[in-house]
Amino acid sequence: MFARRFLISFPIFSFVYIMQESVVSQFKIFGGGFSLFLIFALLWSALGNPEMGALTGFGAGLMMDLSQTASGPMGQWTLIMILAGFTISYLGYGDDNFRGNPISLVFTVAAGVAITRLIYLILGLFLGSEMGSAWSVIASLFSSAFWSVAVVPLLMPIVTRLHEALFDVKSRI
């Protein structure tokens, strides 16, 4: 069951990944812009159960690790995305007040994006990556959260419809 769901999600994630790497990366947006793929993966995870969230995070993290711009070792994004996917789906699983409220979903995903990137940075420091100035990191985290708040409402109707169509689960908001 999990494998089937995982496999049918793969072409969608591949499409978003290609969009991120080839189209979104062309835009030099204020504050460093946003990661469409990261937002999409967290939003997708938030609509599923925790196991599916972890599996989604695993697949998405693997793809992010394959990106040539990933600064850390292969597996760093995978590890963080597993935890992020699991956590974000665990927060809302079985809670209709959370799932049924688009505003809470928007802010949870936006916070999730910033926290995920922060944890990536911290783990990267442990693995020997460089951080840069504290100001640029803080500005980057805040701007990614800001852009996520702007992008999630645009993505949400598409993602919820796709999720519903594929998994036959009433997750539309």
Partner: peptide
């Protein structure tokens, strides 16, 4: 089952990090 899956995935990612390093 969920815990087992989560642990398996985390172990896999740690394995990947080790291989890459």
């Amino acid at each position: 089952r969920g815990r087992l899956l989560l642990i398996s995935l985390i172990v896999t990612s740690l394995f990947l990090i080790t291989l890459d390093l």
